[in-house]
Protein backbone atom coordinates (compact mmCIF):
# COMPACT_ATOMS: atom_id res chain seq x y z
CA UNK A 1 0.00 0.00 0.00
CA UNK A 2 1.16 3.53 -0.56
CA UNK A 3 2.87 4.98 2.42
CA UNK A 4 1.54 8.02 4.19
CA UNK A 5 3.24 11.09 2.80
CA UNK A 6 5.74 12.51 5.25
CA UNK A 7 5.55 16.22 5.92
CA UNK A 8 8.09 18.22 3.97
CA UNK A 9 10.81 20.17 5.77
CA UNK A 10 8.89 23.37 5.11
CA UNK A 11 5.68 22.03 6.62
CA UNK A 12 7.57 20.64 9.58
CA UNK A 13 9.33 23.90 10.27
CA UNK A 14 6.15 25.89 9.81
CA UNK A 15 4.24 23.91 12.39
CA UNK A 16 7.11 23.89 14.88
CA UNK A 17 7.99 27.58 14.53
CA UNK A 18 4.36 28.50 14.98
CA UNK A 19 4.21 26.38 18.13
CA UNK A 20 7.27 28.11 19.49
CA UNK A 21 5.33 31.33 19.18
CA UNK A 22 2.40 29.74 21.00
CA UNK A 23 0.34 29.46 17.85
CA UNK A 24 -1.47 26.51 16.40
CA UNK A 25 -2.45 26.29 12.78
CA UNK A 26 -6.14 26.24 13.60
CA UNK A 27 -5.89 29.04 16.14
CA UNK A 28 -6.64 26.97 19.23
CA UNK A 29 -4.84 27.37 22.51
CA UNK A 30 -2.58 24.48 23.53
CA UNK A 31 -5.06 22.90 25.91
CA UNK A 32 -8.20 23.24 23.83
CA UNK A 33 -9.99 20.46 22.03
CA UNK A 34 -11.47 20.76 18.58
CA UNK A 35 -15.25 20.78 18.32
CA UNK A 36 -16.52 17.49 19.67
CA UNK A 37 -19.81 16.20 18.36
CA UNK A 38 -21.60 13.02 19.27
CA UNK A 39 -24.62 11.61 17.50
CA UNK A 40 -26.45 8.42 18.32
CA UNK A 41 -27.93 6.24 15.62
CA UNK A 42 -31.49 4.99 15.34
CA UNK A 43 -30.38 1.70 16.80
CA UNK A 44 -29.14 1.33 20.33
CA UNK A 45 -25.40 1.26 20.78
CA UNK A 46 -24.26 3.25 17.77
CA UNK A 47 -22.18 6.34 18.45
CA UNK A 48 -20.76 8.60 15.80
CA UNK A 49 -18.07 10.92 17.15
CA UNK A 50 -16.49 13.76 15.25
CA UNK A 51 -13.54 15.62 16.66
CA UNK A 52 -12.62 18.27 14.16
CA UNK A 53 -12.06 16.31 10.99
CA UNK A 54 -11.50 13.03 12.79
CA UNK A 55 -14.53 10.82 12.69
CA UNK A 56 -15.07 7.54 14.49
CA UNK A 57 -18.08 5.29 14.52
CA UNK A 58 -18.54 2.71 17.27
CA UNK A 59 -21.17 0.03 17.15
CA UNK A 60 -22.05 -2.28 19.99
CA UNK A 61 -23.67 -5.65 19.51
CA UNK A 62 -24.47 -8.54 21.80
CA UNK A 63 -25.21 -12.19 21.36
CA UNK A 64 -25.54 -15.21 23.61
CA UNK A 65 -22.57 -17.58 23.57
CA UNK A 66 -20.68 -20.04 25.72
CA UNK A 67 -18.30 -18.42 28.25
CA UNK A 68 -14.59 -19.18 28.28
CA UNK A 69 -13.79 -22.37 30.13
CA UNK A 70 -11.40 -20.63 32.53
CA UNK A 71 -13.89 -17.87 33.35
CA UNK A 72 -17.29 -19.54 33.73
CA UNK A 73 -18.82 -16.65 35.70
CA UNK A 74 -17.79 -13.88 33.33
CA UNK A 75 -19.34 -12.70 30.14
CA UNK A 76 -17.29 -11.90 27.09
CA UNK A 77 -16.45 -8.32 26.25
CA UNK A 78 -14.34 -7.43 23.25
CA UNK A 79 -13.36 -4.24 21.53
CA UNK A 80 -12.22 -4.56 17.95
CA UNK A 81 -10.41 -1.83 16.14
CA UNK A 82 -9.61 -2.54 12.57
CA UNK A 83 -8.38 0.44 10.66
CA UNK A 84 -9.65 0.23 7.12
CA UNK A 85 -8.17 2.00 4.11
CA UNK A 86 -11.06 4.42 4.54
CA UNK A 87 -9.05 6.27 7.19
CA UNK A 88 -5.95 6.33 5.05
CA UNK A 89 -4.82 4.22 2.09
CA UNK A 90 -1.74 3.36 4.15
CA UNK A 91 -3.82 1.02 6.28
CA UNK A 92 -4.30 -2.40 4.85
CA UNK A 93 -6.91 -4.97 5.66
CA UNK A 94 -5.63 -7.92 7.71
CA UNK A 95 -2.24 -6.38 8.31
CA UNK A 96 -2.37 -4.47 11.58
CA UNK A 97 -0.16 -1.42 11.70
CA UNK A 98 1.52 -0.12 14.80
CA UNK A 99 -1.15 2.58 15.15
CA UNK A 100 -3.86 -0.04 15.17
CA UNK A 101 -2.17 -2.23 17.77
CA UNK A 102 -1.46 0.65 20.11
CA UNK A 103 -5.00 1.95 19.71
CA UNK A 104 -6.56 -1.40 20.47
CA UNK A 105 -4.28 -1.92 23.47
CA UNK A 106 -5.14 1.51 24.80
CA UNK A 107 -8.86 0.95 24.48
CA UNK A 108 -8.50 -2.46 26.00
CA UNK A 109 -6.64 -1.10 29.01
CA UNK A 110 -8.86 1.95 29.38
CA UNK A 111 -12.25 0.37 29.06
CA UNK A 112 -11.89 -3.33 29.66
CA UNK A 113 -9.12 -3.73 32.20
CA UNK A 114 -10.22 -0.78 34.28
CA UNK A 115 -13.48 -2.62 34.89
CA UNK A 116 -15.75 -0.03 33.32
CA UNK A 117 -18.33 -2.69 32.64
CA UNK A 118 -19.37 -5.35 35.09
CA UNK A 119 -18.61 -8.46 33.05
CA UNK A 120 -20.05 -10.75 35.69
CA UNK A 121 -23.48 -9.29 35.00
CA UNK A 122 -23.22 -10.70 31.48
CA UNK A 123 -23.28 -14.23 32.81
CA UNK A 124 -26.60 -16.00 32.23
CA UNK A 125 -25.99 -19.63 33.21
CA UNK A 126 -22.65 -20.23 34.88
CA UNK A 127 -20.31 -22.05 32.54
CA UNK A 128 -22.95 -22.50 29.86
CA UNK A 129 -24.48 -19.29 28.65
CA UNK A 130 -23.34 -15.71 28.73
CA UNK A 131 -23.61 -12.52 26.76
CA UNK A 132 -20.83 -11.65 24.41
CA UNK A 133 -20.72 -7.89 24.01
CA UNK A 134 -18.53 -6.52 21.30
CA UNK A 135 -17.76 -3.02 20.19
CA UNK A 136 -16.57 -2.44 16.67
CA UNK A 137 -14.64 0.75 16.18
CA UNK A 138 -14.72 2.07 12.64
CA UNK A 139 -12.43 4.95 11.83
CA UNK A 140 -14.01 6.85 8.99
CA UNK A 141 -11.63 9.76 8.86
CA UNK A 142 -8.28 10.17 10.56
CA UNK A 143 -7.11 13.69 11.24
CA UNK A 144 -5.15 13.15 14.42
CA UNK A 145 -6.03 12.19 17.96
CA UNK A 146 -7.67 8.95 17.04
CA UNK A 147 -7.29 7.61 20.56
CA UNK A 148 -9.42 10.19 22.34
CA UNK A 149 -12.13 10.12 19.70
CA UNK A 150 -12.20 6.32 19.60
CA UNK A 151 -12.31 6.00 23.37
CA UNK A 152 -15.13 8.51 23.64
CA UNK A 153 -17.05 6.69 20.91
CA UNK A 154 -16.61 3.33 22.60
CA UNK A 155 -17.75 4.57 25.99
CA UNK A 156 -20.68 6.44 24.46
CA UNK A 157 -21.75 3.43 22.39
CA UNK A 158 -21.58 1.10 25.38
CA UNK A 159 -23.54 3.41 27.61
CA UNK A 160 -26.16 3.92 24.94
CA UNK A 161 -26.45 0.22 24.20
CA UNK A 162 -29.40 -1.90 25.34
CA UNK A 163 -29.17 -5.66 25.31
CA UNK A 164 -32.24 -7.87 24.97
CA UNK A 165 -33.93 -8.69 28.26
CA UNK A 166 -33.69 -12.25 29.56
CA UNK A 167 -35.35 -14.33 32.21
CA UNK A 168 -34.67 -17.64 33.88
CA UNK A 169 -37.60 -19.81 34.79
CA UNK A 170 -37.18 -23.37 35.93
CA UNK A 171 -33.79 -23.64 34.31
CA UNK A 172 -35.12 -22.41 30.97
CA UNK A 173 -33.47 -19.32 29.61
CA UNK A 174 -35.62 -16.98 27.57
CA UNK A 175 -34.17 -14.16 25.53
CA UNK A 176 -36.86 -11.65 24.68
CA UNK A 177 -36.95 -9.89 21.34
CA UNK A 178 -37.18 -6.10 21.36
CA UNK A 179 -40.85 -6.37 20.42
CA UNK A 180 -41.65 -8.45 23.50
CA UNK A 181 -39.72 -6.56 26.13
CA UNK A 182 -37.86 -3.31 26.12
CA UNK A 183 -34.10 -4.06 26.02
CA UNK A 184 -32.06 -3.30 29.14
CA UNK A 185 -28.87 -1.25 29.52
CA UNK A 186 -25.53 -2.80 30.43
CA UNK A 187 -24.32 -2.78 33.98
CA UNK A 188 -21.94 0.13 33.79
CA UNK A 189 -19.59 1.10 36.61
CA UNK A 190 -17.57 4.13 35.53
CA UNK A 191 -16.76 5.97 32.33
CA UNK A 192 -13.08 6.40 31.53
CA UNK A 193 -11.91 8.86 28.89
CA UNK A 194 -8.59 9.07 27.09
CA UNK A 195 -6.80 12.39 27.00
CA UNK A 196 -3.73 12.53 24.79
CA UNK A 197 -0.93 15.02 25.18
CA UNK A 198 1.56 15.50 22.40
CA UNK A 199 5.01 16.85 23.10
CA UNK A 200 7.03 19.15 20.91
CA UNK A 201 10.42 20.80 21.07
CA UNK A 202 13.88 19.36 21.69
CA UNK A 203 13.15 18.54 25.31
CA UNK A 204 9.44 17.98 24.89
CA UNK A 205 8.77 21.22 26.73
CA UNK A 206 5.63 22.08 24.75
CA UNK A 207 2.56 20.01 25.46
CA UNK A 208 -0.52 20.08 23.27
CA UNK A 209 -3.92 18.55 23.65
CA UNK A 210 -5.84 17.09 20.75
CA UNK A 211 -3.17 17.33 18.06
CA UNK A 212 -4.22 17.29 14.44
CA UNK A 213 -2.66 14.91 11.96
CA UNK A 214 -0.11 17.47 10.79
CA UNK A 215 0.90 18.14 14.38
CA UNK A 216 1.05 14.45 15.18
CA UNK A 217 3.48 13.92 12.36
CA UNK A 218 6.05 16.30 13.83
CA UNK A 219 5.61 15.50 17.52
CA UNK A 220 8.50 14.08 19.51
CA UNK A 221 6.40 12.09 21.94
CA UNK A 222 2.93 11.59 23.30
CA UNK A 223 1.29 10.56 26.51
CA UNK A 224 -2.23 9.19 26.77
CA UNK A 225 -3.85 9.42 30.18
CA UNK A 226 -7.18 7.74 30.86
CA UNK A 227 -9.26 9.00 33.73
CA UNK A 228 -12.81 8.93 34.94
CA UNK A 229 -14.60 11.80 36.59
CA UNK A 230 -13.91 10.40 40.07
CA UNK A 231 -10.25 11.25 39.58
CA UNK A 232 -9.12 7.70 39.09
CA UNK A 233 -6.38 7.04 36.61
CA UNK A 234 -7.24 3.97 34.58
CA UNK A 235 -4.18 3.89 32.45
CA UNK A 236 -1.20 6.00 31.47
CA UNK A 237 0.80 5.32 28.36
CA UNK A 238 3.83 7.31 27.47
CA UNK A 239 5.42 4.78 25.22
CA UNK A 240 8.89 6.14 24.66
CA UNK A 241 9.61 9.29 22.75
CA UNK A 242 11.63 12.25 23.92
CA UNK A 243 11.91 12.31 27.72
CA UNK A 244 9.68 14.87 29.43
CA UNK A 245 10.10 16.39 32.89
CA UNK A 246 8.23 14.39 35.52
CA UNK A 247 6.67 17.55 36.94
CA UNK A 248 5.27 18.45 33.53
CA UNK A 249 3.65 15.02 33.32
CA UNK A 250 1.96 15.57 36.66
CA UNK A 251 0.59 18.89 35.43
CA UNK A 252 -0.65 17.15 32.30
CA UNK A 253 -2.52 14.68 34.49
CA UNK A 254 -4.22 17.47 36.40
CA UNK A 255 -5.40 19.19 33.24
CA UNK A 256 -6.47 15.82 31.86
CA UNK A 257 -8.69 15.31 34.87
CA UNK A 258 -10.65 18.48 34.18
CA UNK A 259 -10.98 17.46 30.53
CA UNK A 260 -12.23 14.03 31.54
CA UNK A 261 -14.87 15.69 33.69
CA UNK A 262 -15.92 17.84 30.74
CA UNK A 263 -16.22 14.76 28.55
CA UNK A 264 -18.24 13.04 31.22
CA UNK A 265 -20.68 15.92 31.55
CA UNK A 266 -21.05 16.21 27.78
CA UNK A 267 -21.76 12.51 27.42
CA UNK A 268 -24.31 12.53 30.25
CA UNK A 269 -26.05 15.46 28.59
CA UNK A 270 -26.14 13.75 25.20
CA UNK A 271 -27.44 10.51 26.68
CA UNK A 272 -30.20 12.36 28.47
CA UNK A 273 -31.15 14.18 25.27
CA UNK A 274 -31.28 10.92 23.37
CA UNK A 275 -33.37 9.26 26.04
CA UNK A 276 -35.80 12.16 25.81
CA UNK A 277 -35.94 11.85 22.03
CA UNK A 278 -36.77 8.17 22.28
CA UNK A 279 -39.27 8.82 25.01
CA UNK A 280 -41.48 10.74 22.59
CA UNK A 281 -42.97 7.50 21.36
CA UNK A 282 -44.53 7.22 24.78
CA UNK A 283 -43.35 3.65 25.03
CA UNK A 284 -41.08 4.32 27.97
CA UNK A 285 -43.80 6.32 29.70
CA UNK A 286 -46.13 3.38 29.32
CA UNK A 287 -43.59 1.02 30.81
CA UNK A 288 -42.80 3.27 33.73
CA UNK A 289 -46.49 3.71 34.44
CA UNK A 290 -46.72 -0.01 34.77
CA UNK A 291 -43.95 -0.03 37.31
CA UNK A 292 -45.61 2.61 39.41
CA UNK A 293 -48.62 0.49 40.14
Amino acid sequence: MPREAEPSLNERQFVLKALEENLRLDGRTFDKYRALALTFGDEYGVADVTLGRTRVLAKTSAEVTVPYADRPLDGIFTITTELSPMASPAFEINRPTETEILLSRLLEKTVRRSGAMDTESLCLVAGQKCWSVRVDVHVLSHDGNLTDAACFAVVAALRHFRKPDTSMEGGVLTVYTPAEREPVPLSWLHSPFCITWCFFGDEGQMALLDATWSEEQVRVGSCTISLNRHGEICQIAKLGGTPVEAVALLQCTNVALTKAKEFSTYLDKKLAEDAKRRDKDGLMAELSAENDR
Binding site: G231, I233, I236, G240, P243, E245, A246, L249, T253
Partner: peptide, 19 residues
Protein backbone atom coordinates in the same frame (compact mmCIF):
# COMPACT_ATOMS: atom_id res chain seq x y z
CA UNK B 1 17.67 13.48 35.27
CA UNK B 2 14.01 13.75 36.21
CA UNK B 3 13.02 13.46 32.59
CA UNK B 4 10.65 10.60 31.99
CA UNK B 5 10.99 8.66 28.76
CA UNK B 6 8.46 5.96 29.49
CA UNK B 7 5.54 6.02 31.85
CA UNK B 8 3.19 3.09 31.70
CA UNK B 9 0.42 2.52 34.20
CA UNK B 10 -1.99 -0.30 33.59
CA UNK B 11 -4.03 -0.32 36.74
CA UNK B 12 -6.63 1.90 38.33
CA UNK B 13 -5.26 4.32 40.85
CA UNK B 14 -6.30 7.60 42.42
CA UNK B 15 -4.79 10.52 40.53
CA UNK B 16 -3.53 11.98 43.82
CA UNK B 17 -1.29 8.92 44.35
CA UNK B 18 0.46 9.41 41.05
CA UNK B 19 2.84 12.03 42.36
Amino acid sequence: TDRVAVLVCESRVQASRLE
